[in-house]
Amino acid sequence: MSAMINVGMAEIKITKAPNRLVTTGLGSCIGLCIYDPVSKIGGMAHIVLPQVTSLGDGDPGGKYAVTAIPLLVENMLKFGANRYRLAAKMAGGAEMFTFQGQNSVLKIGQRNAETIRGLLDDAGIPLVSQEVGGNFGRTIEFNTENGELWVRTINYGERVI
């Protein structure tokens, strides 16, 4: 029996086959999935911001890319995943609103995606597929049975990556 596990904003969840990890309505946030295809252990972090912006707050672990990725990996290893088999997929990082003359520094979705790419690279975890950017929201579902990440949008179709 496969369970659907919801990953709320700033949360990290780890599970194994046949369960699925789900995040509804990603805007600028990014759903980062890391997967071990042999043990079929999968984890998802609902990343909100690239860097730590405040200390001592209520961060359930997945809020900032810089701290979420090491924690997600560490928890997956504790769960029994193998460090050298890990691969990543991600979706989200949209810019939902555009104001005239907006500076690119403010494009938080894009900054989230770039930071995550850099951190995965540093950690030696291959990013095998991604569905990021644009100006639309995404609902994602990660299937730990086969490592497929299902991305659903309202007006831009559905994709499995």
Partner: peptide, 26 residues
């Protein structure tokens, strides 16, 4: 106030983007 911006999409995605626009509060 700024000029208005509009979005037609999932409520969650819209609110997530609004919260991340500017100051970040817990």
């Amino acid at each position: 106030f700024s000029v208005p911006a509009i979005a037609v999409d999932m409520a969650g995605a819209i609110l997530d983007a609004v919260m991340l626009d500017g100051e970040y509060l817990d």
